[in-house]
Design a protein around this nucleic acid. Structure first.
Lengths: 214, 214
DNA sequence: CGTGGTGTTGATTACTTTCAAGATGTGTGG
DNA sequence: CCACACATCTTGAAAGTAATCAACACCACG
């Protein structure tokens, strides 16, 4: 699937998520809109650009030869992704739903390291914290951690939106969709959460979820 | 355990591992020697320094309240660690065996971002690749990936040294020591590896290990 | 030559996956 | 607006993998 982005499109950044930070980095760049499921970059492609999400959600992932997939991160409004240590991409990035992305071109001559470094470090800490979840936490703990993380990134309100499918959640948490579904049901039974719709959740007992993360 | 490093010690960087890269970053800094098991920094401490391993091996990890531990990375000679996005450390760093470390102090006024950024990105890619291992690979695959990674970082020779205990390996791979031990035995039976000693391994069938990573 | 720490091996248990079926939701065309 | 079809999600039963519990072997140290 090699859909291309509709370029040079102006879209007001209305997302329901917190306003993007650090926009000063490249305010002149236009926003590209990627349709649902389209590829932003692929493993093996030339890397170099950075991308800032304006609205929507992006998944960054890696694949094994047999089709197993691990999503290393979801990126919501205001977050920056596309960091690579080498000339070629090691990961895939795809739009979940329609996504508005500001491409930050590597300015020739100008060193933006000091602006980029904090963003890279943010990603590094996030990844390392996720290692703890994948390496040492049970299915329930993983889902609880995920919900709390998503809630926090959306402003810490009781109600949160899940822009991604169960499959995406499973591939992010290192579980199967069935297990994710079962855990959702269990949390629902316990009254910790309420499913307003499939992609919309209300957290009713923060303490229960927090207690599950230890 | 708050052992302190023996400072201002000159130790020739003889390690058996590849020579450190990027030493120009702070060639003036003295080497600190941390004794086996000592703490280099702890979660909650003020962050800001970077550390470059001169010899030995460092483990960086996180803990859950109930004692579960996830090692997010081992750092060998020449590698740099200590990156943090926030003013306080989110992780612990400890010496495995005796370790020589060059502390890179944050130079006031001078912006070293352009030198630090590639190192941070290296760590980011490493962490994200490890996510795939923890999230989607079986015990055997994890151990195989670990051995190949260690071998590669030590020059790609048939013989490799494991500076860390089985417990450390388990906590890095998200397994128990029993499972790690069993996988080692299984690989030994298959003739893929030979245990020269507990901490010294010969890889006899690279293809078998590689095949296990998919 | 004990002694404590580390590593190995075996038996059982527990959790997650896999396989399978059914339910719910969404989008399209009539 | 409804009906159908496909995709996504949920639930159940069986199977598999790694964890846990337990005993023993090995190694380093005094």
């Amino acid at each position: 699937m090699t859909l291309h982005a509709t370029n040079d499109f102006f879209i007001p950044a209305r997302t329901g998520f917190p306003a993007p930070a650090g926009r000063a980095l490249a305010s002149l760049q236009p926003i590209s809109v990627y349709p649902a499921g389209s590829e932003i970059y692929a493993q093996g492609e030339k890397a170099g650009n950075l991308y800032q999400v304006e609205f929507g959600c992006v998944r960054v992932y890696r694949m094994l030869a047999d089709g197993r997939r691990q999503i290393s991160a979801f990126h919501l409004s205001g977050e920056t992704f596309g960091f690579e240590a080498h000339p070629l991409h090691h990961f895939f990035a795809e739009a979940i739903g329609a996504v508005g992305v500001r491409t930050l071109l590597p300015a020739q001559g100008i060193d933006m390291s000091s602006q980029i470094l904090p963003l890279a470090l943010q990603g590094l800490v996030r990844a390392q914290e996720h290692l703890l979840v994948l390496g040492r936490q049970s299915a329930v703990e993983r889902v609880a951690a995920f919900l709390l993380d998503m809630a926090e990134r959306q402003g810490g309100l009781d109600r949160l939106e899940l822009p991604m499918s169960r499959t995406d959640i499973a591939d992010y948490l290192g579980l199967t969709i069935e297990t994710v579904s079962r855990v959702f049901s269990k949390l629902k039974e316990k009254g910790a959460i309420r499913l307003i719709s499939l992609r919309s959740i209300e957290i009713r007992k923060w303490q229960v979820l927090r207690g599950m993360m230890e």
